[in-house]
Computed example of a mutant assay.
Amino acid sequence: MLIELQDHLTHLTLAPAVGGSIVNWRVRASGQPLLRPSDQAALDTGLPGKLACYPLAPWSNRIANGGFDTPAGWLALTPNSLTDPLPIHGSAWQQAWRVVSQSADEVLLALECATPFAYRAEQRFRLRNGELSIALRVTHLAEQAAWHGLGLHPYLPRLPATRLQAKASQVWLSDASKLPTGLAAVPHAWDFQASKNLPEDLVDNGFSQWDGHCRIEQPELGYALECQATGADYFLLYCPPGLGFFCIEPVSHPVNAHHLPGRPGLKLLEHNQSVQLNFTLKYIPTVGGGLLPMAVDQSCM
């Protein structure tokens, strides 16, 4: 069952049963996609990575070494994706969520999960005046404390003139397994302090010391998105060459934080303690944008 929300400017479609994912977010007047558009074939795969956005909990991205330490001892993990040899993105995206409450412009989804430990997750989606607000909250239910991290994985349309602005001071360099090897100054090609086009070469890296703000300009589609995250001091940027999408993911911690010194960004939660990440995306119509047909590659990370 799909859930639909709308305000006077935009229309949102959710698939609670498919990882609590967003299927589409569009401009009502023109039909233009504000997130990567998903068709019925994408929905029929049952894979959140073929849709527009999905939640990351109780961690974001990859974890090495087959698990991580907790106060109760070693927590073993197994790979959970056919496309990656490492455990990735937690477990919330692979569960069916339920609808707790719904109105015309707001819905609350919830999930109780026992893997890799017991937790409850909630996503609150709200549309107001062209602004999509997503609040992702996780409460630890296990008796033994464990490390938690959060994130969101939105896919954005990528056209030749798509531009990004996002201020970060450092970037995590990565090895062939996509695990971080160390922090470095942001190279010029990846420096989005000022708005610029996306790089032509592959980017699949985490950025740190982020102020939580980003701006995505889509002149061919006639709009910009002003975005703001809280509870996320990092973002992951994924720009696959030659495909019609990119991802900028607000996350609470860097990749493999469970094995980095000090476990940056992770929260050790005791029973009934919670952590939350908020992300808002504001639709801003711009002058001179065309109405281009979209043929977006549905490949995923």
Rank of each mutant, 00 (worst) to 15 (best):
P264Q: 10
F246E: 13
V255H: 02
P241A: 13
V255W: 02
T230L: 01
C247R: 09
H253Q: 14
P254Y: 10
E220Q: 13
C214T: 03
K267T: 08
D233F: 10
G222R: 13
S252L: 09
H213P: 03
E217M: 11
N205W: 15
D233V: 05
D204A: 04
K196V: 06
E270T: 02
I216F: 09
G206L: 05
P254Q: 13
G231S: 02
P250G: 10
I248G: 00
G262N: 05
A194G: 08
L202N: 13
L236R: 12
P219Y: 12
E200I: 01
E270H: 11
L225A: 14
I216L: 15
L221R: 12
R215W: 13
G265A: 03
C227R: 11
Q228T: 03
D211V: 10
W210P: 02
L202P: 03
E270N: 09
E217Q: 11
G206W: 07
P261F: 08
S195Y: 01
Y223C: 04
N272S: 14
F245N: 11
A194T: 13
Y234P: 07
E270P: 00
E217R: 09
F246N: 10
P254W: 10
Q228A: 04
D204T: 06
L236C: 09
K267Q: 06
E249Q: 10
C227M: 15
E226K: 05
P250D: 04
H271Q: 15
R263A: 05
A224V: 08
L268I: 04
V255M: 02
Q209I: 07
L236I: 13
V255L: 03
L266F: 04
P241G: 05
T230C: 02
E220K: 09
T230R: 01
